[in-house]
Design a protein around this nucleic acid. Structure first.
Lengths: 351, 351
DNA sequence: ATGAAAGCGCTAACAG
DNA sequence: CTGTTAGCGCTTTCAT
């Protein structure tokens, strides 16, 4: 099976006996060409199995009709769902998406940015890795005039387009809910503080605690990454301090699963010994036992809005003003944190 | 922020006062150029913020160093995991991946193939959608000499590269396990029979049943898609027949979750009223109650092997002989299907 | 309505 | 070691 030479515009032109310019125009629906000619050309193009060469087309037209996307992970329903939503939006708008995955690794993220710039994508949509500390590349991207939209995990600078969720409010209401249920010994398996979601979620937690005059105990506040293992390690560390809280807020769904694993390993029952709420969910949460009460993040909306903003930015170019969007979150009650259970026995013993 | 003109080879050439060819060679590490010149050029390139233009490079070199990937879904841990594995392999080999998602839709799949061919990808890796019936485009791709590797969901033709798992064996041993545990009333929420995985899994089920002289009851064998809702509908349909089986084999993990949902809705308890095994799993399975005993598919291996084969095919071109790989599956025992529970009470009543 | 000329940014082949 | 010449396949003026 020898790699056949590509069919080009000229091949078609030769057969139809017109110039390649005519063919190019005809195939793109340019109004110049007579419908007869167009029909003839299309017919031949079909017979020959012609595919326009994306590279050549973009090189000469100086645009790619392509948007580059960088996410930290995909085997995680939060991102998977955002990505599906981006693909849907792109498909409708006849845009191509080039998806890259940083695997929470800053080097890899940087390398992907370089590739995408090389490909001359028309725009970039990114959710930064949990390791990313140096944001200078993003400034460079902006200086080059390439539209850039951050999603969820953003760079702290309103000059960029950003689509976020109300992390602060989500945390705050989750903690208030836990308090309303009767908990006072409250901890937080938190995210890195150099990432906005880690920061805002912590802040919501802290301010809700303050408002209700509850102490924020350092042993009950552990900081780390956003994956399952981080939750596992974080909760173990928290427990190693001796006394454990009655309730923890988990910074992500995978972190909550890690806490489940750690708790199970230590012979603790949820919510009997430790109760939980987390950010985000997954398709199987309803069958998880106990299913997690969670702060819902509008993933489809994030992807859709981020795409729209990026597209608008591409189209308007210089005229475009950076946009900030903060989408609301909702607390979805499931099995955990329905009423105070953890710590109840101790209190009885004590009282 | 005006879109700055790109920095090109010529710009660098002008500054360093050499020809653009020299610059091109220097930047690609071609041995021709003196190390002094190389150093000078690299320095200037850095200062100017030069990025090679992928389009131009590929257009002139006639290769893209890019592999196109098409999967039916990504918000599903089976595919998400395969994809991560492909990205890892590609990253190591300095290849770019262009990922597209068909959303189980054949039209969309076809359109993606066209885009990918337009982009002149060096190779293609695909897992077909559950709707795909017309395989002619894949033959076209082959005829054009573009390396193509199917993953998991394949076209029934050994002329293509294919990386599959032992679906037949997986089903067979799952059914034998269920029988060994004591079940005789066995059903299958099966996949479409025009897709290889649906077929092979059904076949393994059927032959295991035959071997043990158990009847395959049509009411207990429902066919459909591979998503959660398909499981939900399939199981409801199965139950509408009146008598229900003691045990079902679910064709995928999402289908099993759909069965959980349907069962819960109908007031049935798992495994007390209906016991289950399924193909595949997810990160949260260990916390699902009861956690599903499942047939493990080596997703990382699928992605890795498929990438390697595609790469080898690209490199060898004509010399390459199509490869078939069937990876083994393992039955992983969890909470479901440990001992006969479903149907037990009836038997007691009857006996 | 059609086409000739020029060029997108780069690499390959060959010459000096 | 360095540079010249050509051309990848397409689109974009600008003539005709």
């Amino acid at each position: 099976m020898r790699k056949a030479r590509q069919v080009t515009l000229s091949d078609i032109a030769q057969v139809v006996n017109v110039s390649k310019v005519t063919v190019s125009k005809a195939l793109r629906g340019h109004p110049d060409i007579s419908s007869e000619t167009v029909a003839k050309i299309k017919k031949v193009a079909g017979e020959l199995g012609y595919y326009p060469n994306f590279m050549a087309r973009n090189l000469s037209s100086q645009r790619s009709n392509t948007i580059g996307v960088i996410v930290p992970k995909i085997a995680h329903s939060f991102f998977a769902s955002i990505i599906e939503s981006i693909y849907d939006a792109a498909f409708e708008n006849n845009y191509e998406i080039i998806l890259t995955v940083s695997q929470e690794n800053a080097d890899r993220e940087l390398r992907h940015i370089h590739s995408l710039l090389s490909m001359r994508v028309d725009g970039l949509m990114v959710s930064i890795s949990q390791q990313t500390i140096d944001f200078s590349i993003f400034k460079t991207v902006r200086e080059r005039g390439i539209p850039l939209t951050f999603m969820d995990r953003v760079v702290d600078d309103p000059q960029f387009n950003r689509v976020m969720v109300d992390d602060y409010g989500g945390s705050f209401s989750a903690i208030e809910h836990a308090i309303s249920v009767g908990y006072t010994k409250i901890g937080h398996v938190a995210g890195f503080q150099h990432i906005n979601i880690g920061r805002s979620r912590y802040k919501g937690f802290a301010e809700a605690m303050n408002k209700h005059n509850l102490p924020i105990r350092p042993e009950w506040t552990v900081f780390g990454g956003f994956g399952e293992n981080d939750g596992y390690l974080g909760f173990k560390k928290m427990c190693s301090s001796g006394e454990i809280p009655e309730f923890v807020l988990a910074v992500t769904y995978p972190v909550a699963l890690g806490i489940y694993r750690a708790a199970t390993e230590m012979g603790m029952k949820i919510p009997r010994d430790i109760d939980i709420i987390c950010f985000g969910t997954s398709a199987s949460n309803r069958f998880v036992s106990p299913s997690l009460t969670y702060i819902e993040q509008p993933t489809v909306e994030i992807g859709k809005r981020a795409f729209e903003i990026t597209l608008e930015n591409i189209r308007k170019g210089d005229q475009f003003e950076p946009k900030q969007i903060i989408l609301p979150t909702t607390l979805v009650l499931q099995d955990t944190c329905r009423k105070k259970t953890a710590g109840v026995r101790e209190n009885i013993a004590a009282g």
